[in-house]
Design a protein around this nucleic acid. Structure first.
Lengths: 168, 168
DNA sequence: TTGGAATAGTTCATTTGTGTACTATTTCAA
DNA sequence: TTGAAATAGTACACAAATGAACTATTCCAA
């Protein structure tokens, strides 16, 4: 019996009081927020020993995942699901600490390319074992078929969420 | 082609560079975070016209969903997926504005019970139509069977996430 | 009983995140 | 060409969220 059962009851009651309030999407959205928060908190706890938080981690991992070529700040913003202003702030910190570098994009001088320094890569490879084992614990909850299903349903939900926001 | 495809590529590449890094759970966690962020931003945009943000909304809705009996701050913290300190802050604001009230729990004097005022209920019923229609747009992405599936998989993931955090 | 451990909630300093305005650059239609 | 609109990124003031310390209360084993 998860703590979430109480939330489910409250959603059901709200639907009774106000029938236009749709139970199922309300559940989905609450579940996603709760999961996201727990993952965030847990990652923060694990990453603290490296002097990092979950946002730093998200940024560093996306940079690690694009190897030498680097990426733009806007790509980084989308990849890390942060606002531009926050990406700037986080990049300032990570650059100050010598883990990443900024350089102008010769193709388009409005753009700023960012990438990991060798020290940044070393840092990532230092925390990757603990973070991988953490991720594996989440993965262990599902068999292969369920994983595929969940991933595909979440991709659909993300697509819709992006579209709703765009059209607003 | 969602913006997320680039992220998927980076995760795949990271898995190649560092095979211990598990692709699937990394995808799930990134998807959840991205959805959560889009929902948050969209809700903030809609709620702004009522002088509210998404966190305020989450708190108000949980109070609306427990009718007169009220709930404790800790229950509210779990229901809204926030930290205690943040719940205190948000409750201060909502109390100041006359939408909710605090009172001591006679059963256990450490506890503080919170509930909506009549003005708070009126406010909720004012924004519920727009928020319900927003929720319905998310729900429209899935048929009944998919909704049940997704909800059940997310509940499982939440259970695991809660457990991992507890055991850390 | 009683006193140490656990729980509930708040306070406060600090960190994290956001909206908005701004500069620089590029795009593109007239 | 050119100049208005769009795009990329940053600066900054402000808002939201957090960790840690603290008070008050309750629990519970000795």
């Amino acid at each position: 019996m998860s703590r979430f059962d109480a939330t489910e009851n409250r959603i059901n009651l709200t639907h009774q009081r106000f029938p236009g309030y749709p139970r199922e999407p309300a559940m989905l959205v609450r579940l996603v927020k709760a999961i996201s928060q727990h993952v965030h908190d847990t990652a923060n706890l694990v990453l603290r020993q490296y002097g990092l938080n979950h946002t730093d981690y998200n940024v560093l991992m996306m940079l690690y995942g694009c190897q030498q070529e680097g990426m733009t700040v806007t790509q980084l913003r989308d990849a890390a699901a942060e606002k531009s202003a926050n990406v700037t702030r986080v990049c300032n910190i990570l650059c100050d600490r010598g883990w990443m570098a900024r350089y102008a994009d010769p193709q388009d001088r409005r753009r700023v390319l960012v990438s990991l320094t060798p020290e940044g890569e070393a840092l990532v490879e230092q925390f990757l074992p603990s973070m991988s084992s953490l991720l594996n614990q989440y993965g262990a909850a599902f068999d292969a078929r369920e994983t595929v299903q969940l991933e595909s349903l979440l991709k659909r939900l993300l697509g819709v969420a992006e579209q709703i926001e765009r059209e607003l």
